[in-house]
Design a binder for these strands. Structure first.
Lengths: 109, 109
DNA sequence: TTGACAGGCAACTGTATGGTTGCCTAATCT
DNA sequence: AGATTAGGCAACCATACAGTTGCCTGTCAA
């Protein structure tokens, strides 16, 4: 469904943006200025971050009179978890087993 | 366990690095030059990417004579999935419900 | 022991990105 | 209407980062 993995990964790469997601997770539908409160940076900087999150479809903004309310969209994250992370998690035992075997072989030399 | 979320997120942000993880996932224990094969960039560039992945603890490298074999460590990803993504996935229904309600209120105006 | 091969280090370059300041538009409240 | 408040736009700056080139070190095999 969500085709653009890259946008999501890149959006998640920044700590401030993850903080914004956390903030919306705690209280959904906040305005730009509300979101600014915890972030210690200019409104414009936060606005840019929200734009990046929006491009990744992680945040949806709705005009409400003169203000915009921002809503978290967890779907892309869930999507990632299912398609991408699951792949690695499934075989984590295998990978660690290979590493261990290699380490043992190492100490044989 | 894996304290440094940021390193992991930043490491995953780059498509080439995700490709490297995929490659190791397909065949674990590859050397630098083997990993270069699919990547269409210099050996040094790949080496840098591997360093980033190493810093995030996603890849472990072992000397084996004159070559280094690289091993995938899926633990940090699994860790992320559990602690971070789970949090969002759990309440995805709530978030979407809030958005829908807001959209309806919008059309009332 | 010499040549080939795997990898590491350092310097340099261009571009993306996080952040700022300043000004502008639009909606809201007296 | 006029002041205030929410947000958008554009230019600008510094730094981080992906990638390159060139050279050096260490290991293996003939």
């Amino acid at each position: 469904m969500v085709r653009d993995d890259d946008a999501v990964f890149r959006a998640l790469a920044d700590a401030s943006r993850r903080h914004l997601l956390d903030s919306l997770h705690a209280r959904n539908g906040q305005t730009l200025r509300e979101l600014c409160a915890d972030l210690d940076m200019t409104r414009q900087a936060v606005s840019k971050h929200l734009a990046v999150l929006g491009e990744a479809n992680l945040v949806v903004a709705l005009r409400h009179g003169r203000e915009r309310r921002h809503f978290l969209n967890p779907a892309p994250i869930a999507d990632l978890a299912g398609r991408w992370i699951g792949k690695y998690e499934r075989e984590r035992v295998t990978a660690l087993a290979e590493l261990t075997r290699e380490l043992e072989q190492e100490s044989d030399d």
